[in-house]
């Protein structure tokens, strides 16, 4: 297990490194000139050269990338003209456009996106596993069909459309909930949850239907296994069988699916943020694209990529930990 853990972590680190090289190379070798953008309109060639060297863009791309990596671990000082801007240790670059380190932007936006994604994930698992079990236990065919229909419609429903409908119905027409504004969890937990409730529901609904279908399939499969029959023969109650025997077998695939989906939920969260006006990484990214603020674009993309890679690694490790039958190759 320990060996597997180490191998998996090293593998994830290699992927992260490759990811950073590709992202950095693609954006900085691209056709847009970051120095020209930072310099602004009416830029003289002399001034451009100064900006270029202060941003380190006069060096070869490989050197730039290496100093980018160096800055992640040791920080970096950017001098532009008389003033020196310090970017402390996990430095993902400096946004000259907004005059702050990229990590500062991430520090204020990532909690919003994380609140949105993690809350939605928890809600969808809760709803999904619950609904899946209900369809199995009640053995009603229409419930099962309804579930399939919801999954199908959910697949055809862009998340921003769901968000829009929820906003119109619950905030504008019924006025049950306020239009969401972000309140930090540390400041006011109740307000945090109240404001995020609608975005959570928007994200979770579709996902929950998929989990419900999966829970149903897995539970049905496990129910037909020998150990469940044995438990039944011993006279255990249906409830004990489900909680003690069936769910244990049905959950591992769901864990993997959920961890992989976390990345997808992050993506959907970016799309819904805009809809609900929540200041998350999606909004930061879109506004950075508007002003071609490359350091922010690279920083946000890389951070999201890191979340993706780590979630996948975590899924594999969790899976191996939960299910002893998994061979650690």
């Amino acid at each position: 297990m320990i060996g597997y853990l180490i191998r998996r972590v090293i593998g994830a680190a290699v992927v992260l490194l490759a990811l950073s090289a590709i992202v950095y190379g693609l954006f900085y070798a691209g056709p847009s000139d970051p120095a020209l953008l930072a310099c602004g309109k009416g830029c003289t060639p002399d001034r451009l050269a100064v900006v270029k060297s202060s941003m380190g863009l006069d060096k070869p791309l490989v050197d730039q990338y290496l100093s980018f990596l160096h800055a992640i671990f040791f920080g970096h000082d950017y001098s532009s003209g008389p003033s020196v801007r310090h970017c402390p240790a996990p430095c993902l670059g400096y946004s000259f456009e907004t005059d702050q380190p990229v990590t500062t932007i991430l520090g204020s936006t990532l909690p919003v996106s994380a609140s949105l994604a993690l809350g939605a994930m928890a809600l969808s698992l809760l709803l999904g596993i619950g609904a899946g079990l209900v369809t199995v236990l009640s053995r009603r065919r229409w419930l099962d069909r309804g579930l399939n229909a919801v999954v199908l419609v959910g697949y055809a429903m862009p998340v921003f459309l769901v968000a829009l409908i929820l906003l119109i119905v619950f905030c504008s027409d019924l006025r049950w909930l306020p239009f969401p504004t972000y309140v930090p969890l540390t400041q006011d937990p109740a307000g945090w949850a109240q404001n995020l409730l609608l975005p959570w529901i928007a994200l979770a609904l579709i996902q929950a239907a998929a989990y419900a279908r999966m829970t149903r399939a897995q539970t049905l499969e496990t129910l037909s296994e020998d150990h469940v029959r044995t438990a039944r023969a011993y006279g255990l109650s249906q409830r004990r069988i489900i909680t003690g025997h069936v769910l244990r077998g049905a959950l591992p695939p769901l864990v993997t699916m959920a961890a992989i989906d976390l990345a997808g939920i992050m993506t959907s969260a970016v799309l819904t943020e805009t809809m609900f006006g929540l200041p998350g990484i999606g909004q930061a990214l879109v506004s950075a694209v508007g002003s071609t603020d490359l350091p922010v674009i690279v920083g946000v993309t890389l951070t999201a990529g890191a979340v993706y890679v780590l979630a996948n690694a975590l899924a594999d490790i969790l899976y191996a930990a939960i299910d002893p039958r998994v061979e650690l190759a």
């Binding site: 490759a18 691209g30 990484i281 674009i297």
Partner: peptide, 21 residues
């Protein structure tokens, strides 16, 4: 292939839109 699957593709696409002429 694994690497492209590890990309948060929509986020990446948003970023790419900034640098395409």
């Amino acid at each position: 292939t694994d690497l492209t699957l590890a990309f948060p593709s929509v986020l990446f696409a948003i970023g790419l839109m900034a640098i395409v002429p």
